[in-house]
Protein backbone atom coordinates (compact mmCIF):
# COMPACT_ATOMS: atom_id res chain seq x y z
CA UNK A 1 0.00 0.00 0.00
CA UNK A 2 1.42 3.34 -1.01
CA UNK A 3 -0.45 5.61 1.38
CA UNK A 4 -1.73 4.93 4.84
CA UNK A 5 -5.45 4.50 5.40
CA UNK A 6 -7.18 6.75 7.89
CA UNK A 7 -10.68 7.93 8.78
CA UNK A 8 -11.81 11.45 9.54
CA UNK A 9 -14.90 12.85 11.17
CA UNK A 10 -16.62 16.19 10.79
CA UNK A 11 -20.07 17.59 11.42
CA UNK A 12 -22.37 19.49 9.10
CA UNK A 13 -24.71 21.00 11.69
CA UNK A 14 -26.22 17.95 13.41
CA UNK A 15 -25.18 15.43 10.74
CA UNK A 16 -21.92 13.58 11.38
CA UNK A 17 -19.72 12.49 8.47
CA UNK A 18 -17.12 9.71 8.63
CA UNK A 19 -14.79 9.64 5.63
CA UNK A 20 -12.67 6.67 4.60
CA UNK A 21 -9.42 8.16 3.34
CA UNK A 22 -5.90 7.35 2.20
CA UNK A 23 -5.20 5.61 -1.08
CA UNK A 24 -7.39 6.31 -4.17
CA UNK A 25 -9.34 3.11 -3.49
CA UNK A 26 -9.50 3.78 0.26
CA UNK A 27 -8.15 0.28 0.82
CA UNK A 28 -8.94 -0.80 4.38
CA UNK A 29 -5.99 -2.51 6.06
CA UNK A 30 -7.86 -3.60 9.22
CA UNK A 31 -11.41 -4.95 9.47
CA UNK A 32 -12.01 -2.46 12.32
CA UNK A 33 -11.55 0.53 10.02
CA UNK A 34 -11.74 3.00 12.91
CA UNK A 35 -10.73 2.61 16.55
CA UNK A 36 -13.85 1.70 18.58
CA UNK A 37 -13.09 4.40 21.17
CA UNK A 38 -12.79 7.00 18.45
CA UNK A 39 -16.02 5.82 16.82
CA UNK A 40 -17.84 6.07 20.15
CA UNK A 41 -16.42 9.52 20.76
CA UNK A 42 -17.55 10.73 17.33
CA UNK A 43 -21.01 9.24 17.50
CA UNK A 44 -21.72 10.30 21.08
CA UNK A 45 -21.37 13.96 20.18
CA UNK A 46 -24.34 15.77 21.80
CA UNK A 47 -27.19 16.58 19.42
CA UNK A 48 -25.97 14.36 16.59
CA UNK A 49 -29.04 13.30 14.57
CA UNK A 50 -27.64 11.18 11.76
CA UNK A 51 -24.37 9.76 10.50
CA UNK A 52 -23.09 9.46 6.94
CA UNK A 53 -20.22 7.14 6.02
CA UNK A 54 -18.48 8.06 2.75
CA UNK A 55 -15.24 7.56 0.89
CA UNK A 56 -12.85 10.47 0.38
CA UNK A 57 -12.18 11.15 -3.30
CA UNK A 58 -13.71 9.27 -6.20
CA UNK A 59 -14.53 5.91 -4.59
CA UNK A 60 -16.20 4.55 -1.48
CA UNK A 61 -13.74 1.74 -0.85
CA UNK A 62 -12.30 -1.19 -2.71
CA UNK A 63 -12.26 -3.15 0.56
CA UNK A 64 -9.45 -5.03 2.23
CA UNK A 65 -6.06 -5.94 0.84
CA UNK A 66 -5.95 -9.71 0.17
CA UNK A 67 -2.19 -9.89 0.65
CA UNK A 68 -2.50 -8.27 4.10
CA UNK A 69 -5.24 -10.74 5.02
CA UNK A 70 -3.01 -13.65 4.01
CA UNK A 71 -0.13 -12.17 6.05
CA UNK A 72 -2.36 -11.87 9.10
CA UNK A 73 -3.60 -15.44 8.70
CA UNK A 74 -0.03 -16.69 8.95
CA UNK A 75 0.40 -15.07 12.38
CA UNK A 76 -1.36 -17.30 14.93
CA UNK A 77 -4.92 -16.10 15.45
CA UNK A 78 -4.21 -12.49 14.47
CA UNK A 79 -6.67 -12.68 11.59
CA UNK A 80 -9.43 -14.06 13.78
CA UNK A 81 -8.89 -11.34 16.34
CA UNK A 82 -8.90 -8.55 13.79
CA UNK A 83 -12.05 -9.93 12.15
CA UNK A 84 -13.75 -10.06 15.53
CA UNK A 85 -12.84 -6.42 16.08
CA UNK A 86 -14.28 -5.64 12.66
CA UNK A 87 -17.51 -7.47 13.50
CA UNK A 88 -17.87 -5.55 16.74
CA UNK A 89 -17.42 -2.25 14.94
CA UNK A 90 -19.98 -3.07 12.24
CA UNK A 91 -22.44 -4.28 14.89
CA UNK A 92 -21.92 -0.95 16.67
CA UNK A 93 -22.83 0.87 13.46
CA UNK A 94 -25.92 -1.28 12.94
CA UNK A 95 -27.02 -0.86 16.58
CA UNK A 96 -26.53 2.92 16.61
CA UNK A 97 -29.63 4.81 17.72
CA UNK A 98 -29.39 7.44 14.98
CA UNK A 99 -29.80 6.67 11.25
CA UNK A 100 -26.56 5.74 9.50
CA UNK A 101 -26.44 6.31 5.74
CA UNK A 102 -23.72 4.94 3.47
CA UNK A 103 -22.95 7.40 0.64
CA UNK A 104 -21.35 5.30 -2.08
CA UNK A 105 -19.64 6.75 -5.15
CA UNK A 106 -18.13 4.37 -7.71
CA UNK A 107 -16.19 1.45 -6.20
CA UNK A 108 -17.67 -0.39 -3.22
CA UNK A 109 -16.10 -3.83 -2.97
CA UNK A 110 -15.56 -6.50 -0.34
CA UNK A 111 -15.00 -4.99 3.10
CA UNK A 112 -16.28 -1.65 1.76
CA UNK A 113 -19.56 -3.28 0.82
CA UNK A 114 -19.69 -4.97 4.22
CA UNK A 115 -19.43 -1.57 5.93
CA UNK A 116 -22.22 -0.29 3.66
CA UNK A 117 -24.42 -3.28 4.52
CA UNK A 118 -24.10 -2.51 8.24
CA UNK A 119 -25.53 0.99 7.62
CA UNK A 120 -29.29 1.52 7.84
CA UNK A 121 -29.68 3.15 4.42
CA UNK A 122 -27.52 2.89 1.30
CA UNK A 123 -27.32 5.67 -1.29
CA UNK A 124 -25.23 4.90 -4.37
CA UNK A 125 -24.22 7.08 -7.31
CA UNK A 126 -25.49 6.01 -10.72
CA UNK A 127 -21.90 5.02 -11.61
CA UNK A 128 -21.38 2.92 -8.48
CA UNK A 129 -20.20 -0.69 -8.72
CA UNK A 130 -20.70 -3.21 -5.93
CA UNK A 131 -19.13 -6.63 -5.50
CA UNK A 132 -17.81 -9.28 -3.21
CA UNK A 133 -14.61 -10.18 -5.10
CA UNK A 134 -13.33 -12.32 -2.21
CA UNK A 135 -14.07 -15.58 -4.03
CA UNK A 136 -11.56 -14.60 -6.69
CA UNK A 137 -8.93 -14.93 -3.96
CA UNK A 138 -10.50 -18.15 -2.67
CA UNK A 139 -11.88 -16.23 0.33
CA UNK A 140 -15.38 -15.30 1.51
CA UNK A 141 -16.61 -11.95 2.87
CA UNK A 142 -15.46 -12.02 6.49
CA UNK A 143 -17.25 -9.10 8.15
CA UNK A 144 -20.88 -10.14 8.17
CA UNK A 145 -21.57 -9.50 4.49
CA UNK A 146 -22.83 -13.00 3.90
CA UNK A 147 -25.05 -12.60 6.97
CA UNK A 148 -26.50 -9.19 6.12
CA UNK A 149 -26.92 -9.55 2.37
CA UNK A 150 -29.63 -12.27 2.39
CA UNK A 151 -31.98 -10.13 4.49
CA UNK A 152 -31.82 -7.45 1.79
CA UNK A 153 -31.54 -9.44 -1.44
CA UNK A 154 -32.90 -12.87 -0.46
CA UNK A 155 -30.92 -16.08 0.03
CA UNK A 156 -30.67 -17.02 -3.63
CA UNK A 157 -29.54 -13.66 -4.94
CA UNK A 158 -27.11 -13.26 -2.04
CA UNK A 159 -25.56 -16.62 -2.79
CA UNK A 160 -25.16 -15.74 -6.46
CA UNK A 161 -23.58 -12.36 -5.63
CA UNK A 162 -21.19 -13.68 -2.97
CA UNK A 163 -20.20 -16.84 -4.80
CA UNK A 164 -20.04 -15.39 -8.30
CA UNK A 165 -17.88 -12.46 -7.32
CA UNK A 166 -19.62 -10.55 -10.10
CA UNK A 167 -19.79 -6.77 -10.22
CA UNK A 168 -23.28 -5.33 -9.69
CA UNK A 169 -24.26 -1.96 -11.14
CA UNK A 170 -26.19 0.68 -9.20
CA UNK A 171 -29.38 0.01 -11.14
CA UNK A 172 -29.18 -3.75 -10.57
CA UNK A 173 -28.33 -3.26 -6.90
CA UNK A 174 -31.48 -1.15 -6.54
CA UNK A 175 -33.59 -3.85 -8.18
CA UNK A 176 -32.06 -6.49 -5.94
CA UNK A 177 -32.78 -4.45 -2.82
CA UNK A 178 -29.11 -4.13 -1.85
CA UNK A 179 -29.27 -0.33 -2.08
CA UNK A 180 -32.11 2.07 -1.36
CA UNK A 181 -31.45 5.13 -3.53
CA UNK A 182 -29.56 5.87 -6.74
CA UNK A 183 -28.15 9.42 -6.93
CA UNK A 184 -26.69 11.08 -10.05
CA UNK A 185 -23.12 10.10 -10.98
CA UNK A 186 -20.58 10.96 -8.25
CA UNK A 187 -23.29 12.73 -6.21
CA UNK A 188 -24.04 10.09 -3.56
CA UNK A 189 -22.85 12.29 -0.73
CA UNK A 190 -25.01 15.34 -1.56
CA UNK A 191 -27.98 13.05 -1.99
CA UNK A 192 -27.32 11.28 1.32
CA UNK A 193 -26.91 14.61 3.11
CA UNK A 194 -30.20 15.93 1.70
CA UNK A 195 -31.90 12.68 2.73
CA UNK A 196 -30.45 12.83 6.26
CA UNK A 197 -31.73 16.39 6.62
CA UNK A 198 -35.19 15.54 5.30
CA UNK A 199 -35.42 12.71 7.80
CA UNK A 200 -34.15 14.52 10.86
CA UNK A 201 -34.35 18.32 10.58
CA UNK A 202 -37.75 18.85 12.19
CA UNK A 203 -37.50 15.87 14.50
CA UNK A 204 -36.50 15.99 18.16
CA UNK A 205 -33.57 13.75 19.02
CA UNK A 206 -35.54 11.57 21.50
CA UNK A 207 -37.99 10.74 18.69
CA UNK A 208 -35.21 9.77 16.27
CA UNK A 209 -33.55 7.62 18.91
CA UNK A 210 -36.81 5.92 19.89
CA UNK A 211 -37.62 5.02 16.28
CA UNK A 212 -34.12 3.59 15.80
CA UNK A 213 -34.30 1.64 19.06
CA UNK A 214 -37.62 0.08 18.12
CA UNK A 215 -36.28 -0.95 14.71
CA UNK A 216 -33.11 -2.36 16.28
CA UNK A 217 -35.01 -4.12 19.08
CA UNK A 218 -37.12 -6.01 16.57
CA UNK A 219 -33.85 -7.57 15.41
CA UNK A 220 -32.24 -8.19 18.80
CA UNK A 221 -34.96 -8.68 21.46
CA UNK A 222 -37.61 -11.39 21.98
CA UNK A 223 -41.07 -10.16 20.95
CA UNK A 224 -42.53 -9.61 24.43
CA UNK A 225 -39.54 -7.56 25.54
CA UNK A 226 -39.50 -5.56 22.31
CA UNK A 227 -43.22 -4.78 22.72
CA UNK A 228 -42.80 -3.62 26.31
CA UNK A 229 -39.83 -1.45 25.38
CA UNK A 230 -41.71 0.07 22.44
CA UNK A 231 -44.69 1.10 24.57
CA UNK A 232 -42.34 2.45 27.24
CA UNK A 233 -40.53 4.61 24.66
CA UNK A 234 -43.83 5.74 23.16
CA UNK A 235 -45.15 6.85 26.54
CA UNK A 236 -41.99 8.90 27.20
CA UNK A 237 -42.50 10.73 23.89
CA UNK A 238 -46.21 11.19 24.68
CA UNK A 239 -45.34 12.65 28.08
CA UNK A 240 -42.88 15.14 26.50
CA UNK A 241 -45.43 16.14 23.88
CA UNK A 242 -48.23 16.56 26.44
CA UNK A 243 -45.88 18.75 28.48
CA UNK A 244 -44.95 20.78 25.41
CA UNK A 245 -48.61 21.39 24.54
CA UNK A 246 -49.43 22.38 28.10
CA UNK A 247 -46.68 24.98 27.92
CA UNK A 248 -48.27 26.59 24.89
CA UNK A 249 -46.73 24.60 22.05
CA UNK A 250 -49.04 24.17 19.10
Amino acid sequence: MSKEFFTTFHCLDDIGVISLSGSPGNIIPQPAFVEPELFDEWTSRPGLKALIIRGEGRNFSSGGDPSLILQLSARGNDLERSLEAGHRLLNRIEDLDIPVIAAINRICFGGGLEIALACHIRVVSANALLAFPEVNHNLVPGMGGTYRLPSLAGQAQAAVTSLGGDIVTAADALKMGIVDHVAPADAAFDYALALARKMTSDRPLPLIRSVMKVLNNSRTLPREEAMAEETRLFCLLARDEAERRKNGGD
Binding site: M227, E230, T231, F234, C235, L237
Partner: peptide, 8 residues
Amino acid sequence: YNLMPGIG
Protein backbone atom coordinates in the same frame (compact mmCIF):
# COMPACT_ATOMS: atom_id res chain seq x y z
CA TYR B 1 -46.81 15.21 16.24
CA ASN B 2 -43.42 14.43 17.81
CA LEU B 3 -44.62 10.87 18.42
CA MET B 4 -43.81 7.52 16.90
CA PRO B 5 -46.01 4.56 16.01
CA GLY B 6 -46.29 2.78 19.37
CA ILE B 7 -48.10 -0.48 18.70
CA GLY B 8 -45.95 -2.40 16.27
